[in-house]
Amino acid sequence: MGLAIDASCDLPQTFLQEHNIAVMPITVRVDDEVFLDDRSQVEIHRFLDRKLGDRSHSAETEPCTVEDVQRLFLDKLVLEQDCVFCLTITATRSPINDHVIKASFAVLKNYRGVREKNGLTGPFLMRVIDTRNLFAGAAPTIVEATRLIAAGEAPAAIRERLTHIANNSYGYMLPRDLYYLRARAKKKGDRSVGLFSAVLGSALDIKPLLRGYRGETGPVGKVRGFEHGAETLFNYAAERVQAGLLVPAVCISYGGELSEVAKMPGYDKLRAACEEAGVALLESPMSITGMVNVGEGAITLGFAAEEHVADF
């Protein structure tokens, strides 16, 4: 069994390589420049080094087409695996989930001939899972998938468990630039960040803490200043770790140099809580897609836990 994810699911490249996870890339166009968002460190650094700043909010993103997904599976994955779980960010924010579902019909119709030509027999299964979250918030479902595959669980049991984890995954985001966030939201027709809120928030250095949960995103708190916001978010995550998680992992992504995360207030407390509880702390550069949507310098953090009320 294997896994495929879309590029905006934030996990470290080393984790993806260790578990042989295929990545469905996203094409990002900023003016006349094109970036292939495939979670490659080289491409992420090329994007950061270009210092595109405010220009990025006008970027066009093109997720894998139905045909691209079909080619990935029929040219490669059906020859390497007998069952592939395909995990995407929430269908409410991206068409990639719909593309993968549509592609699955053609894949499941045509895989037999491809496998037989290469001396492979037996059925091929393709299962599509909506993580119902964004960026680092999509990571807990993927981490759990690797754990279940390693444990030798049956496909039906894996699918049921991953659906449960997706429904109980929490993704938090702390943006750095409200003006950028509003400009990007306006371009995409999203009215969730109004001009008044952006101006007031920037003037007073007030940042919203946003949460992704079950396909919905919205503010759950406000903090004064980015550093204080990071400390608030990390302290909150440490408390959730101590209370118990459904998947022993906390995932952080950052829209900049990853070495900056460990210097932020509250990080040491979160790391210590994870170590004490035997929880993996996975740190990842934010995808290029994530950065053009929420702005460079933003933090996202994800974990899976029983339903609870966020208290900020």
Rank of each mutant, 00 (worst) to 15 (best):
N293D: 06
P175G: 08
V78F: 12
E227N: 06
H19Q: 07
R112Y: 07
L178D: 04
I299L: 14
V220Y: 11
A298N: 03
P248I: 07
L125V: 00
F226T: 08
L148C: 12
E276L: 03
Y172W: 10
D49I: 01
M24A: 15
D75I: 06
A151E: 12
R184V: 04
A304P: 02
C86F: 08
A310D: 11
Y111D: 05
V128E: 04
G244V: 09
C251H: 10
T141F: 09
E18I: 00
L233M: 14
I26L: 14
Y236K: 02
L16G: 00
C83Q: 06
R191S: 11
E43W: 10
A262Y: 00
K207Q: 13
A91Y: 01
G152P: 07
G290L: 03
Q70S: 13
V78W: 08
H99D: 06
Q70I: 12
L134Q: 01
T217I: 15
R161P: 11
S259Y: 07
R176I: 07
L134K: 02
A262F: 00
F234T: 04
P248A: 11
D32W: 09
H19Y: 14
Q242D: 12
D98R: 03
G152A: 08
A203H: 09
E33L: 13
G218R: 08
V30S: 01
A237H: 04
G2V: 08
V114L: 12
E276I: 05
N97H: 14
F226R: 08
V69I: 15
V292S: 01
E80C: 12
S259W: 05
V241E: 07
I21M: 07
A150S: 06
L178A: 09
D177G: 10
K187S: 06
N167L: 10
A238K: 03
V220W: 09
G244L: 10
V261I: 12
C251P: 03
A138P: 02
L120M: 12
F226G: 03
K76V: 07
V261Y: 03
A273D: 02
L246S: 05
P219C: 07
A103D: 02
R132M: 09
E60V: 15
S58H: 13
L210R: 03
S253G: 07
R93K: 14
L181M: 15
D130E: 05
